[in-house]
Each structure stands twice: as structure tokens, then as C-alpha cells.
Simulated assay, not measured.
Amino acid sequence: MRRSTVNVLGLLTVYVLIPRAIPSPTSPSASGTCTLSSSGSDDAPALLKAAADSACSTVTIPTSTTLSIQSKLNMTGTLNKHINLQGTIKFNPDIDYWTDNAFTFDFQDQAAFWLLGGKNIVLDGGGTIDGSGQAWYDAFAKDSSTLRPILLTLFQATNVTVQNIRMIDGPEWINFVNEGQHITFRNITISAVSTSKNAAKNTDGWDIFRSDDVVIEDSNINNGDDCVSFKPSSLGQYEGEYDIVQNVLATNIHMSNAQNGARIKAWAGKGVGSGLVKNITFSGFVETNVDNPIIIDQCYETSADDCAKYPSNTYIQDVWFNNISGTSSGKEKAVVASLSCSPDGRCSDINVNDINVTPPSKYGTPQFSCQNVQISGDAASLFGTCKTTG
């Protein structure tokens, strides 16, 4: 994947046991604040103990402190907690340990360093979560079966705000929201960039799974894969699974040097799942040097023949591409927008308005392609008459 840089200026919403003595955090102050310091070894037990202590309403990691996390963090069931991260939480790049001990998910064979769940949690403070990703980027280049942990997983969490935090060098996905409700990310800076010849791969900024009311705003992302991805069963990837992604607003997005801009993809072919994508709006995108600035691909990873024979069972409805401008990279030559659906009316109510995207000058006039879809809106004429199959 190519590196993508995105500035999310607006709103995005979707309706152990440790065989050692556990060091204690500083005793709670009168205000209920517990302040942690570096132990010189594994600081995970102290962080876990403070998070579980109801007397510690605020857990503070001071600016000058780096907590070394050498064992997994299970902070599910956390209640009414403020984690004031002013310093750094840094995960030790012990690949052998994490391969055997990270939390695992059947969904897309994922693993995680840190599960944060419960109710009424704030994680802020201006500090850094560091995944020590370079060791993982290099290991994955040698062995693509290496299971790389997610940096931060909000697991079955309700009423959580993560804000004013820097997240760097996650081994794979940066944020995973799994079965959460009322989640807000605000003023998050993400950077996952390799310093060797081995690229940082699959470093999605956010992946959202079976969650409701997730807001991501005023954030900056520089990574090597998706910026924000909605992944209920990965839109028809898994046979026997039915999922819904609906009520999505992505607005005021600045994006550069990316593979895909405003995109919806769904699997087709024999033996895939099914679902519904509905009420999706992409608005106010400014894109620079993007391979596919506007794209619907309802035959993802499926040949044209197989897609015609086995159309996608993920229906796409009520989609709006509004006020999208900028430049393509020229990878698709003059094509700057492609809306390609499965046969038999699997896409409906697709709207395009105020589209002004151009390819590099050597490719001439911008071209717009479509297949098996009826398009409405003031820019519909750009697509002409769509081809049909089946």
C-alpha cells in the first residue's frame, strides 16, 4: 500500500497473571489522583493496578515519564476513569512475547497490546502512545505470518473520549473500536512511518467494528494504509455473516499521496457474506495525488466473470459524494472517479454533486467511469451512460 496522509478537519460518525510483585502507584491524593513513575522494568502491572483502583479517579503519567509496557494490558471493565497521559506509554518490541501473549481476535486474525473497556473513560493529556513499530515492520518483511498487535483497542466500551494524544509507530492497526458505543476521538496525531526499506503495512488509523456513534474529528494521520475503515465482517468478506454500515458522515477531509479517497468496497463472488451499506455521505474532500479519488467497488477482489455470476450480497444504498476537488495521481490515467457495482440493482440512490477532480495534465480531460449503477445529482452527466453486465 502507498503511504497516505490525511488531515481530518471535521466529523466522521457512525449511527494474567504476573509472576512477580506488583509495584504500587503513588497513593491517591485528596483529589483522587494517582501518579505513576517508571520502575525501570515492566510498568504494566502498576498501570493496571491504578486503573482498577476506584480511589484513583485520575491516573497521571507525568510529562517526564515513560512507562515501559512489557506485558499485555487488560483494562476492560474500567469505570469512571481519567487517564492523564502527559508522558509516554511505550510498548516493548519483544516479538516472541507478544506473539505468544497478545490478545487475539478471530476477526481478520488480529492481535492487541491493550484492551481498554468499560464506561465513562477519558484518555488525554497531550502525551504519546508508542508501539515501537520498526521492529515489527522489519519482522513482517521477513515473515508475512507475523501477528502484529493493534496499538489501542477500545473493547466493549461506552462513553469514551480519547483526545489530545499522539500515536506513533503502531505495528499494525493503530485504533480498533470493537463493539463500542458513544466513542469520541479528537485531536489525535497518528504517524506510522518506517525508517528502513521495509514499509509500515496495514497501519490503519481507525478500524470500526460493530459499533455505534463513533466520532473522529480534528485529527491528522500519516500512515501506510486506510485512514478510517468500517469493518463489520469487512463488508461481505465472510460467508454466513450479515452486517450493516449506515449513517456515516465524512466531511472536511484533506488527503494527499493516497491510494483511495472517498471509497466504498464490498466483496462479491461465491462463498462470501452479505449486508447493507446505507446513508453514507462524503463531503468537502480536498485530495492531492490520490490514485482513486472517488470509488465504489462492489466486486472487490472478484473477477468480472465471477461478479456477474455471483453478484455482491452487500447492498449499497443512499450514497452521496458532494463537493470533492483536487487531483488524481494518474495511476488510472485520466480516470478520476469510478463507480462500479454488481449487476441486478445491488447499488441504488447514488448521488454525485460538485465534483472537480483532475488528472495530471499529460492525461488530458478527466474521465469518469461507471457500471451497473444509476447516478443522480448535478455531476451525474460526467459519468455518461453506465455499462451494464448480466
Rank of each mutant, 00 (worst) to 15 (best):
G384I: 03
V290F: 11
M75F: 04
Q371R: 06
R186S: 13
D306A: 10
D130N: 14
T78W: 15
G117K: 12
T26R: 07
H82E: 12
A258N: 04
T288E: 14
A51V: 09
K362D: 04
H82G: 08
N202C: 14
T388Y: 09
K270V: 08
E332I: 01
Q181W: 07
R20L: 10
G118W: 15
A141M: 14
I324H: 06
A30W: 12
I95M: 08
P149A: 10
F103P: 02
K278N: 07
S381G: 12
K197D: 10
I22T: 00
S342C: 05
R166G: 02
I83L: 15
F176A: 02
S369D: 13
T13D: 01
G125K: 05
L48E: 00
A51W: 10
Y242I: 08
D169C: 01
F285I: 03
K201S: 13
V16I: 00
P149E: 04
I89M: 12
L382I: 10
L11G: 15
A250V: 07
V177C: 11
I150H: 06
A266G: 09
L115Y: 14
L11H: 13
A52K: 08
V357E: 10
S38L: 08
S132D: 03
I129F: 10
C227E: 00
A50M: 05
K333D: 05
N178G: 04
G125H: 04
S381A: 12
S64A: 14
G384D: 06
D109M: 06
N353V: 06
G224M: 06
E172I: 07
A262T: 13
I355N: 12
Q371T: 01
A262V: 02
N74Y: 07
P343K: 14
L115D: 01
S57C: 01
D42S: 09
K265C: 00
P25A: 10
I208W: 01
C56K: 09
F209E: 07
V177S: 15
E239A: 02
V214Q: 11
I216K: 04
V59W: 12
D226V: 08
D212T: 13
V228G: 06
F285L: 09
V193H: 06
A304P: 05
D212I: 09
T288I: 15
S37C: 11
L85M: 11
C299V: 03
V286L: 13
D225V: 00
L235G: 00
K90E: 11
S369M: 12
I183P: 08
W267D: 00
P25H: 11
A157K: 12
S38M: 09
N322I: 02
G131R: 03
P359G: 09
K201C: 06
S329N: 15
K278G: 05
L276S: 08
